[in-house]
Amino acid sequence: MSAVEHDFSAFVAARGTSLLRVAYLACGDRAEAEDVLQTALERTYRNLHRVRHESLEPYVRRVIVNTAISRARRRAILSVIPMHSPPETSARATDADLRHVLMEALRALPPRQRAVVVLRYWEDLSETQTAEVLGCAVGTVKSQASKALAKLRSALGRETVEGVIRNAHA
């Protein structure tokens, strides 16, 4: 194994799980996420000479997010996934129920809006950083985030979410 392969393997071993979680949130499907992650790592490895060492992880994240977006568009996932009806969540709903509701709502978002949610609220990127990753204006990130949150509120039911969370964590 060459030094480059060794270093890359060490990076994957250290950050693979974190990147898989990003891929899962961006795709909404575990098998798809694993495939997207491997594809992203292969693309990154092929272009490793162009990636500065200190920015390797953000680089892979960008590839993951953009791969997920382009795949979703290519497969016209949005046209076959119905918008989810507000769930009938009881006051005794568990965290697992909530997570299921959230993931369904995330899957129902357009891929770019989903990416904004993942980057802003999971990766904690700023609006500027999110705009850089997605190659769009900061204003676009703001509007996409606003629309995404509005749809999550609408799909989940803001009051329902708050009530269930309070009960679930009580």
Binding site: V12, L25, L41, E42, L102, Y121, L149
Partner: peptide, 28 residues
């Protein structure tokens, strides 16, 4: 806030996900 709730739910949802041990080997 809703954003904080989303963040927590995403953390819970992904907590059981782990990259395959042979991921790097497969990529290479």
């Amino acid at each position: 806030t809703l954003e904080e709730e989303i963040r927590q739910l995403m953390a819970d949802e992904t907590a059981s996900l782990y990259a395959a041990p042979d991921l790097a080997e497969r990529v290479l």
